[in-house]
Design a protein around this nucleic acid. Structure first.
Lengths: 133, 133
DNA sequence: TTACTAAAGGATAAAAATTATTATTAAGAT
DNA sequence: ATCTTAATAATAATTTTTATCCTTTAGTAA
């Protein structure tokens, strides 16, 4: 939980209430866009500046505390960094969910085929979720 | 080649020199960002408006003639729609390449696990290309 | 604790990216 | 060749993101 404090310090980022608030909202939501985040954060910090939000998001992405998830035909969402995983998005309800999935063999095949050395991947599967079917 | 004419007509888009020019540049480049495209198109159509470019890109994405490729930590690029494929990006030289790769078993596993019905996927592998190693 | 310093926050302006508006032009049909 | 409608160009407006600058605060050390 609040090893956010630790993680922030690790990267020489000061521990401010705003930052903890941002992280806790992202944590709770799972995935959240900038606009959604701004609305949510302002419930706790009514005077927070949009610039502060952007600056912090950018910092935290740089130090690998947050990850940007680029959504096909949609706006980016942000999540707390954890184990590597993929994503699924429902084309009807737009829900975004994590998906634990081994891509090892795929990546290995790709590497053999291309000669690239891969150390990261981003997979988003699009379709219809069970509830919307 | 110039079944762009056909494809445009198919979707009730008029065949204009600008549109053919845009498509031919994207085709030649493989993948291209809006800014790069604007610069390139203006070599052939010096007076083309940026708004025209955006509108056409949006139209063509809607009718499935073009596809937006969202790049981790980078700006989107556009490509001509063809068979389903993945992408690789080099973190050093930023080169983006196509990669033919079967994701069938991965998608199947994902579907079984989640209950989603998937009909699309976007995979970008990041690493170092052979030339940059 | 208190005081200091450097980083962070807030307000705002500026820049960059995208979309909307409107008059003119040109594609495609008759 | 003419007509109608969609596309283009120019531009304004909007949206998104970043930069600036002054004030506040976190973290450190007396």
């Amino acid at each position: 939980m609040n090893d956010y404090i630790h993680k922030l310090k690790e990267h020489n980022l000061k521990v401010t209430p705003q930052r903890l608030g941002i992280l806790s909202i992202i944590q709770k939501s799972g995935h959240i866009s900038i606009e959604e985040l701004y609305v949510a954060v302002r419930r706790d910090f009514s005077t927070i500046s949009l610039a502060t939000l952007y600056k912090n998001i950018n910092f935290m992405v740089e130090v690998n505390l947050l990850k940007e998830v680029k959504i096909p035909n949609g706006k980016s969402k942000y999540e707390i960094v954890k184990e590597e995983h993929s994503h699924m998005i429902c084309k009807k309800c737009s829900k975004l969910e994590d998906l634990e999935l081994s891509l090892q063999s795929v990546v290995q095949t790709a590497s053999k085929k291309s000669g690239y050395l891969f150390d990261d991947n981003a997979l988003v599967l699009s379709g219809i979720c069970p509830q919307c079917q």
